[in-house]
Simulated scan of single mutants.
Amino acid sequence: MKLSAATTLFSLALATVPPPGPDGKYTLTAPGITAKFIPYAACITNLLVPDKNGTLRDIILGYDNASFYPVDPNHSDYGAVPGRYANRIKDHTYVLNGTRYFTEANDGNGTLHSGTNGWSHRVWNVSAVSNTSITFSITDVGNSSLGMPGTVMGSVTHSVSNSSWHTTIAAHAVDHVTPLMLTTHPYWNLDAFANPDTDLILNHTLSLPFGKRMIGIDENTESTGELPTVPKGDINDFWSAPKMIGASMGDARWVGNCGTAGGCAGYNNQWLVDRGSGEEEMPIATLSSGWSGIKWDLYSDQPGIVVYSCHWMGGGNQLKAAQGGKASNGFVRKDGCVAVEPQDWIDGINHPEWNRTQYQINGPGMPPFSSFIQYKFSTV
Score class of each variant (00 low, 15 high):
Asn125Pro: 15
Ser127Cys: 10
Val129Asn: 06
Ser130Asn: 14
Ser130Lys: 03
Asn131His: 00
Asn131Tyr: 03
Asn131Gln: 12
Thr132Leu: 00
Ser133Ala: 04
Phe136Trp: 14
Phe136Tyr: 15
Asp140Glu: 09
Asp140Tyr: 03
Asp140Thr: 11
Val141Phe: 08
Val141Ile: 14
Val141Gln: 13
Gly142His: 12
Gly142Cys: 04
Asn143Gly: 11
Ser144Arg: 12
Ser144Ile: 02
Leu146Trp: 04
Gly147Thr: 06
Gly147Pro: 01
Gly147Ala: 05
Pro149Cys: 06
Pro149Asn: 07
Pro149Arg: 07
Met153His: 15
Met153Asp: 08
Met153Asn: 14
Gly154Thr: 09
Ser155Ile: 05
Ser155Asn: 14
Val156Ser: 11
Val156Asp: 05
Val156Trp: 04
Thr157Phe: 05
Thr157Trp: 01
Thr157Cys: 03
His158Leu: 07
His158Phe: 15
Asn162Gly: 11
Ser163Arg: 10
Ser163Ile: 02
Ser163Asn: 13
Ser164Asp: 11
Trp165Gly: 09
Trp165Lys: 08
His166Val: 14
Thr168Ile: 08
His172Ala: 00
His172Trp: 01
His172Leu: 00
His172Val: 00
Val174Gly: 00
Val174Phe: 01
Val177Glu: 14
Val177Ala: 09
Val177Lys: 10
Thr178Met: 04
Thr178Cys: 13
Thr178Arg: 02
Pro179Arg: 01
Leu182Trp: 01
His185Arg: 01
Pro186Trp: 05
Pro186Thr: 09
Pro186Leu: 03
Trp188Ala: 01
Asn189His: 12
Asn189Ser: 07
Asp191Leu: 02
Ala192Thr: 02
Ala192Leu: 11
Ala194Ile: 07
Asn195Arg: 15
Asn195Lys: 15
Asn195Ala: 13
Thr198Glu: 10
Asp199Asn: 15
Ile201Cys: 11
Ile201Met: 13
Ile201Ser: 09
His204Tyr: 10
Thr205Gly: 07
Leu206Cys: 02
Lys212Glu: 06
Arg213His: 09
Met214Trp: 02
Gly216Val: 13
Ile217His: 04
Thr221His: 11
Glu222Cys: 01
Glu222Gly: 01
Ser223Gln: 03
Ser223Asp: 04
Ser223Gly: 00
Thr224Phe: 01
Thr224Asn: 10
Gly225Gln: 04
Gly225Ile: 08
Glu226Trp: 11
Leu227Arg: 09
Leu227Lys: 12
Thr229Ile: 09
Pro231Cys: 06
Lys232Trp: 06
Asp234Lys: 05
Ile235Glu: 08
Ile235Gln: 10
Asn236Ser: 05
Asp237Ile: 07
Trp239Glu: 05
Trp239Asp: 03
Ser240Ile: 13
Ser240Cys: 12
Ala241Ser: 15
Pro242Cys: 08
Lys243Ala: 09
Met244Trp: 06
Ile245Tyr: 00
Ala247Thr: 05
Ala247Asn: 08
Ser248Val: 03
Met249Ala: 05
Ala252Asp: 09
Trp254Ser: 06
Trp254Leu: 03
Gly256Val: 09
Gly256Tyr: 07
Asn257Ala: 12
Asn257Ile: 03
Cys258Pro: 09
Cys258Phe: 04
Thr260Lys: 13
Thr260Asp: 15
Ala261Arg: 14
Ala261Asn: 14
Gly262Tyr: 03
Gly262Glu: 01
Gly262Thr: 05
Cys264Asn: 11
Cys264Glu: 14
Ala265Tyr: 14
Gly266Leu: 01
Asn269Asp: 13
Gln270Glu: 12
Gln270Arg: 07
Trp271Lys: 14
Trp271Ala: 02
